[in-house]
């Protein structure tokens, strides 16, 4: 059975998973539910219509940043619970 240390680690991991997937859901789905309405907004400085911009660039960039951020957070969680393997190179 999992030790309590491992359970605490898994609870934190699950919390991070929920936040990450909520942001993912927002940028991949929620925005495009309102594609028609949002497209009348112009992106400041760049001048593209908003929905067009989000599917051409905005959401894509958001995903890249999201994965970097969440993998950094996960490493913090692993370190905090003493289960990180970042130093290991061999099996």
């Amino acid at each position: 059975m999992a030790t309590s240390k491992h359970e605490a680690h898994w609870n934190d991991t699950k919390g991070l998973m929920r936040i990450t997937l909520a942001l993912w859901f927002f940028f991949s789905i929620v925005i495009f539910m309102f594609g028609y309405q949002l497209n009348s907004v112009k992106v400041p400085l760049l001048g593209y219509p908003l929905s067009y911009y989000m599917c051409a660039q905005g959401s894509l960039a958001a995903f890249v940043i999201l994965i970097f951020w969440s993998s950094g957070k996960q490493q913090e969680i692993d370190m905090k619970h003493g289960v990180s393997d970042a130093e290991r190179t061999e099996d």
């Binding site: 993912w24 940028f27 894509l60 995903f63 994965i67 969440s70």
Partner: peptide, 8 residues
């Protein structure tokens, strides 16, 4: 969107 978001 689909071919990038999947990586999350």
């Amino acid at each position: 969107v689909g071919w990038t978001g999947g990586y999350v």
